[in-house]
Design a protein around this nucleic acid. Sequence first.
DNA 1: CAAGCATATACTCCTTGGGTTATATATGAG
DNA 2: CTCATATATAACCCAAGGAGTATATGCTTG
Lengths: 114, 114
Amino acid sequence: MTSVFEVIAEPNRRAILSLLVGTEQSVGEIERHLRLPQPAVSKHLRVLRDAGFVEATVDAQRRVYRLTPKPLEEVDAWLEQFRQFWSAHIDALERHLDRMDRSPRTKKRPRRKP
Amino acid sequence: MTSVFEVIAEPNRRAILSLLVGTEQSVGEIERHLRLPQPAVSKHLRVLRDAGFVEATVDAQRRVYRLTPKPLEEVDAWLEQFRQFWSAHIDALERHLDRMDRSPRTKKRPRRKP
DNA sequence: CAAGCATATACTCCTTGGGTTATATATGAG
DNA sequence: CTCATATATAACCCAAGGAGTATATGCTTG
């Protein structure tokens, strides 16, 4: 699993993350919530752990999982570059239409090899 | 491609999105930037278009692509549920350690079937 | 120590999706 | 009309990864 984005691409993994907001949960609990076979849950948790989305502590035979924020912050950081854009989107659209308006209906442009 | 998360899981698609921040680009331009064969680019653009990440306008034989913000906002919205968490993370950790401290070193707990 | 529960791991099967090659479509130039 | 350019689509191949089954590991209790 190369990137955090691939990790959160999987619906069940996103479900696990959402499940862990605010509450630690054992594997068994997660299993019951997601209604997914236990090995599948363990596998997803492994991926999440390796990517740093969650960490576990041992409680007898149980492993209790909880969220760790770093990778999610990474996603947030990636989104940052678009925020300025989408808040400015309306304005940009206006300027664009403006330009379209004032330029004389682009007719010829091969533009490659002049 | 079911979800926006699967769409942005692909590195080249993320590259295309980043490339389109602030500047419209034709397929050929994108192709040169990413150094990816044209059909691959077209395929990715198709996925991005279908998911609403970009839209295209026709300029003679060219298609000029630009960003559209909605799906990215969707990702942002999903992240929202974690924001409260990760800003509260330090505090929560402190409280957690506190509890660990005051409870007498959890020894036995099958807890299932009392 | 034996038994039982909780979780992890190994392995197989099958689907999905990205790259590639070839071809189709559409537009503009001469 | 013919040719070149720009992009899209189709068909194929291949690798990756998720689900499922079986098994291993580890801890607890009697």
